[in-house]
Amino acid sequence: MPVLPKIAEYADELTAIRRDFHQHPEIGFEEVRTSGIVAEKLKGWGIEVHTGLARTGVVGVLKGKGEGSKTVGLRADMDALPMDEQTNLPYASKNPGRFHGCGHDSHTTMLLGAARYLAETRDFSGTAVFIFQPAEEGLGGARTMLKDGLFDKFPCDEIYGMHNNPLAEPNKVGVKPGAAMAGASFFDITINGVGSHGAMPHHSKDPIVIASALVQSLQSIVSRNVPAVDTAVLSVTQVHSGSAYNVVPDKAVISGTIRYFKDEVMELIHHRVRSLCNGMAQAYEISIDVDLRNIFDVLMNDPALSEAYLDAAREIVGAENVEETREVATGSEDFADMLKVVPGAYCTLGHKGTVPVHNPGFILDDDMLPVGSSIMARIVEKRLAS
């Protein structure tokens, strides 16, 4: 089965919707315009709509023709990145410092396409729940929806998500059963030194010297403390200090991220970060404040539901374009938080392009929209078959 015929009929409309979202990107918890459009379209298709979860989240509920009691959830994220776009597209971002550089505009659009198709056909028994989530990019949108009672108000038996992939061949669908994407923590380390004149550093306790030593020491955690058979990443991505050529500053801030695939590895790294900071503070007779925040859980795909997702994808893109992948991704995705509560699976869908996501020159291929919508719709029809 190729792209579902009904979805193919309104492929141009999906492109128009996606490009409109692209022109008007909104970052986490500010997706007021985006969520308003989503709610309006769902209502227009006769879908029961609920708003206000996690401030800007939207949930649609649709019952099929049959009387089944099972519920399947589909989820898409809506937020953009806080960065400038450099694509020169005619529909480029109109909002400075805001860019759909990760493809969430396509995720939202594909879920809308699936929702419209299912509303028009209702060829399933049970209930479909369409979850439009805000603030995926490190701001805790999934956790906030859960805190607001997402699955208490809209119980799901299983749930599915999707992400575009410009580094895969067009229409290639991949799912990694089990641990698929890394959990993540962010950290901010503030070194409270003593400032001085730049020509008299002996009067200081130089936070830049201490920060330099600490950055080097932090790099030893993965290589010397994490077991060699485990995968982990610790990256210092920001160093901030100083304001003048002739002043030794009194503070320096180091920030970065930790990625892991086991909670015990995360706990080990957190412990070592704090231990190294405590040791540096004692050695240099200063204080160091450590702020470690777990942002994403490890994304765990249910093996059986991963195969069900692949089976649905085969009917749309063909068996030759579907694979059970073996490699884990060190990127993170807060759909993992939903998968800790409800079993499900998360797939990637390839599209034309050579520029990776989170790059100012990233361009999404609109040809993927009806494909993704069809896969999402088909998994509902198959899992809620009469």
Rank of each mutant, 00 (worst) to 15 (best):
H100Y: 14
T354Q: 13
L14Y: 11
E264R: 12
I221H: 10
G73D: 02
I254Y: 04
L305M: 12
F132P: 01
V3C: 06
P90N: 06
K65S: 14
V247R: 07
A336F: 03
L53G: 06
A39S: 14
R33W: 11
D311V: 04
Q282T: 11
S386E: 15
E9H: 04
I191A: 07
R293N: 12
G66P: 10
S332G: 05
P201K: 09
L218N: 08
A92S: 13
L369V: 09
E323F: 05
G161N: 06
G161R: 07
R274T: 14
H50V: 01
I221T: 13
Y91W: 15
S212Q: 05
P5K: 07
S332A: 14
L369F: 13
L118A: 02
G195T: 07
E40H: 14
E324T: 13
V32I: 15
Y160D: 06
L89H: 04
V49F: 15
T56C: 05
D206Y: 03
T87W: 04
H271F: 07
R259D: 02
K41L: 15
E267C: 01
E137R: 10
G149A: 07
M78Y: 11
D289T: 12
Y117E: 00
E381W: 11
L4V: 13
I221W: 09
F21R: 00
T330C: 11
T56Y: 05
T109F: 11
L299H: 02
I295T: 14
R383H: 10
E85S: 10
N278G: 04
P25I: 11
A319F: 00
G361Q: 15
A385N: 13
S374P: 10
G97M: 12
K70G: 04
F362K: 04
P201M: 12
H240R: 09
N321R: 12
P134L: 11
L299G: 03
I258A: 02
K65D: 08
T15C: 02
Y117K: 00
A184I: 06
Q216P: 00
N359W: 03
Y245A: 14
F154K: 01
V3Q: 06
H197I: 09
D297S: 14
T71C: 13
S275P: 00
F186E: 14
L81A: 08
M110V: 04
M376S: 07
E267S: 12
D188P: 03
S241L: 08
F296E: 09
G331S: 13
N88H: 15
Y160H: 07
E327L: 15
F132Y: 14
G256L: 03
A54Y: 09
A304E: 15
L89W: 06
P177S: 09
Y346C: 05
I258L: 12
K65C: 03
F335A: 09
G68K: 04
L89K: 05
